[in-house]
């Protein structure tokens, strides 16, 4: 087992590896965390995800832009690929699954991929349909997988309109499904009018929402552990 001091050092390095989009460091220290007997969850949440939280702040402060964000995400994935097989299944009373994709007519998938990454980190089962996805495909995949969530993304005003049809179809088939829509042209107003359960106008907000979601998962995990300890 790594000492507390060593643990902190590894976590700090993982965090900085993500912030400084250093894939080599992310790889080396993720492996080191495992070799030295650290908990993989600890390394993911308190190392890699902490780094991504800081990236979110830098993005919001407009110190980082999309290229930096993509490079940070690459570093996070390098670490995640190493650590994830060693994650002990968390019993949080949540088993999330999500169908995600960019609607037909839209070939932009950067925002969608960022949201997908955060779902991956959170341990969700992610069914990624990719980009330019025919509208019926979302309903089909949801019915097949019984996912808790369906996330629709559109980058352009010209494709956003297709989301309404998917929302209507999904709600008609399964009133309990939660639907998130996202992308530059989407607004709170549109989300409400069309009956979506949540929305994100841009990558900043998508990232923020996803981080909030992860942060609340982290909190639940800590509470669960505190209960176990008492």
């Amino acid at each position: 087992m790594a000492t507390e001091e060593r643990r902190k050092e590894i976590l700090e390095t993982l965090k900085n590896a993500v912030i400084q989009y250093d894939e080599d460091a992310a790889k080396e220290f993720s492996q080191m965390a495992l070799d030295e007997g650290m908990d993989a969850n600890d390394a993911i949440f308190n190392g890699l995800v902490s780094g991504m939280e800081e990236v979110g702040r830098l993005f919001e402060a407009q110190e980082y832009f999309v290229p930096e964000l993509l490079m940070c995400a690459d570093a996070l994935y390098v670490g995640l690929d190493i650590l994830k097989p060693h994650v002990k299944q968390l019993d949080l009373g949540i088993r999330g699954s999500v169908v995600i994709g960019t609607v037909e007519g839209d070939v932009h998938d950067i925002g969608k991929n960022i949201v997908k990454m955060m779902f991956d980190v959170a341990g969700f089962q992610v069914y990624d349909l990719g980009k330019d996805v025919p509208l019926d495909k979302f309903v089909e995949e949801h019915m097949k997988t019984h996912s808790d969530l369906v996330c629709l993304s559109a980058m352009m005003t010209t494709t956003m309109v297709g989301m309404k049809k998917v929302i209507d179809d999904l709600k008609a088939k399964n009133p309990d499904v939660k639907i998130m829509i996202g992308g530059a042209p989407v607004s709170q107003d549109i989300a409400e009018k069309w009956g979506a359960d949540g929305y994100s106008p841009d990558a900043t907000n998508a990232l923020k929402d996803a981080i909030n979601m992860i942060s609340s998962l982290k909190k639940m995990k800590e509470e669960a552990e505190a209960k176990k300890g008492s």
């Binding site: 007519g105 330019d132 010209t158 494709t159 309109v161 049809k165």
Partner: peptide
């Protein structure tokens, strides 16, 4: 280019 000729609704062409 894909002009989505199979779609009745309005979809703009993509690469």
């Amino acid at each position: 280019v894909n002009v989505y000729s199979h779609v009745e609704d309005i979809l703009y062409p993509t690469i």
